[in-house]
Design a protein around this nucleic acid. Structure first.
Lengths: 313, 313
DNA sequence: CTCCGTTATGCTCCTAATGAGCATATGGTA
DNA sequence: TACCATATGCTCATTAGGAGCATAACGGAG
């Protein structure tokens, strides 16, 4: 079928809104889920919705009781697989939401799940997870061996980049590339679904319906990247916090440990926070100063650019 | 109307694909247009399209004869204004395409237009354009004066950030913020359209149909940002080029001048290019070495992350 | 009450990345 | 041949980033 064949036929397109809502709960980076963790909050875009964002907020609130604050658009998907039926295409518009979960009394508990239940290979806070070395790499290697010549090189190189092999270092931002590599290699449950293969068992890591896990990976990747050049962590923090709490939130999200003193220096030189004057002695050692986010910075930061060797005026 | 009112009614959604295709032509950053520069290439997403990207490529090729290379998704819009009729919502999925225009014999010329025809305030290569000081800032100031108290402060601050006032420096990435500010202030033709106001004349800068100019601004902003941390300029360059040509492409895109020696140092240390061995004496002075992009880098670069004070293993 | 374990903070040292320019090389041209 | 114009090489000062030592301050265990 060609695009020009019947230009005036109006095709129905079903548009879904889908949310990756992130929060940090006790050093665990979490996503808001429904259906016992098997799906992300989502629903169709409808006439009643004032905007895409408004529709998304409605669905999330309706399905989880959670009211979203900061959200940003992630990506719009429309795969062949997402064909609803022969005459209707399905499109998903995904959003990333950042929240600080304040569980109030009398509210139904939300179904927050750790990212690392779905992507156990992504948490490098205690060093590289054991399953990478013992399971993932061997099976990726085997997958590369399946083909010859150039394609094999290609598979090897992709694996090496994604998992930081051959002297390369681990890059926590490549969440999506890793998931897609594992998908292609048939190592995750979602990939095994359509091939009727009874063959191999998937590697550890919880699966989700449809392509929700891929969308979650997209959200995680975006957040891990963005956290480095925009002050978005604050959307995930309580109004008042210690620098250690801030650091641990960053560590949870990025899945790696951070040099404490240098992290503080970074935060301070950027003037993102100010002391409240209070301290907290809940951490066991010397009481820590409490900080709050400097609101003025919020607006300015939106504007912070990166570097080019420009000539100053 | 409420989203839950008739959950089973299937709403038609019309999905449009729209392209911001960029190229650098003789030191001018250009976008591919149709309708004498009044619109961006676009068309409906149809059943015959294998994917969103494929659909987009089809439309661009059909409308402009240009075959796209590198493309990436930009943003998905669905505003109230984009309502096609009472029962149909319209959504636009926009893409950014990067190309090097090689005009071959016998091909219809493409309608490339300089970005700065549409956004004359964005080209700071020869210093801040005169219209900023003489026209834009006064009218923005007047617009801020329209309101009292907090909102006024807000308008002032937004203008100051967007245009680098009060000691702030110009940030070339804020293309979209600037356009939206001018839109809100009623200084661009698109904003004046719906208000039946005969009132004020818009500031200089060519307008486009619907929200195409806003989408163009989104694409420019994305490219100006991305050029700084991913080797995407190369998509816009001929296969072989001098460092000055590369520099001038960057300057055209970013709209500002770059320190020549430091720019070279940057390029060389990143090992993005390699000498071809040839030189070019077309520049008037000492012949320049010719370079080509190192293909190996392409793949690796996709993976290049940014900084966090992580602890090394 | 003192010693310890623990976390908070302050600072130093070194190296790499950046911002600015000066100096030299090498064509074409008057 | 002198000069103009662009290409390249290098230096110097400053800032940002990576590592780790040293000191401070609080709760608890002898």
């Amino acid at each position: 079928m060609n695009a020009t064949q019947d230009p005036h036929q109006r095709h129905e397109v079903k548009v879904d809104l889908i949310a990756v809502v992130a929060a940090v709960i006790g050093n665990r980076p979490c996503a808001l889920t429904i259906q016992q963790g098997r799906a992300l909050p989502s629903g169709p875009f409808e006439l009643g919705h004032r905007s895409l964002q408004a529709g998304l907020r409605d669905w999330v609130e309706q399905q989880t009781g959670h009211r979203l604050g900061y959200i940003e658009q992630l990506y719009t998907f429309a795969d062949r697989d997402r064909l609803a039926d022969e005459l209707t295409r399905a499109i998903s518009i995904s959003y990333l939401g950042l929240t600080h979960d304040e569980r109030r009394e009398g509210q139904a508990p939300r179904d927050w799940r750790s990212w690392y239940d779905y992507f156990p290979w992504e948490d490098h806070r205690d060093g590289a997870p054991e399953i990478v070395e013992s399971l993932i790499l061997p099976r990726l290697a085997a997958w590369a061996e399946e083909v010859e010549g150039e394609p094999r090189e290609d598979r090897c190189q992709r694996a090496a980049i994604a998992f930081g092999l051959d002297g390369r270092s681990w890059n926590e931002e490549l969440v999506l590339q890793r998931y897609e590599l594992l998908y292609e290699a048939g190592l995750v449950e979602e990939a095994l679904r359509k091939r009727g293969e009874d063959a191999t068992a998937p590697i550890p890591g919880r699966s989700m319906i449809a392509d929700h896990r891929r969308i979650l990976a997209t959200g995680i990747a975006r957040l891990r990247t963005k956290i480095k050049y925009r002050p978005v962590v604050f959307e995930l923090m309580p109004p008042v916090f210690t620098l250690l709490q801030l650091q641990q939130a960053v560590e949870a999200l990025s899945g790696r440990l951070v040099h404490k003193q240098n992290f503080r220096r970074l935060i301070e030189q950027q003037e993102l926070v100010e002391e409240t004057g209070e301290t907290s002695s809940e951490t066991g050692g010397r009481p820590a100063k409490l900080f709050r986010f400097r609101p003025a910075v919020l607006m300015e930061r939106t504007a912070a650019g990166t570097k080019l060797p420009v000539i100053r005026a």
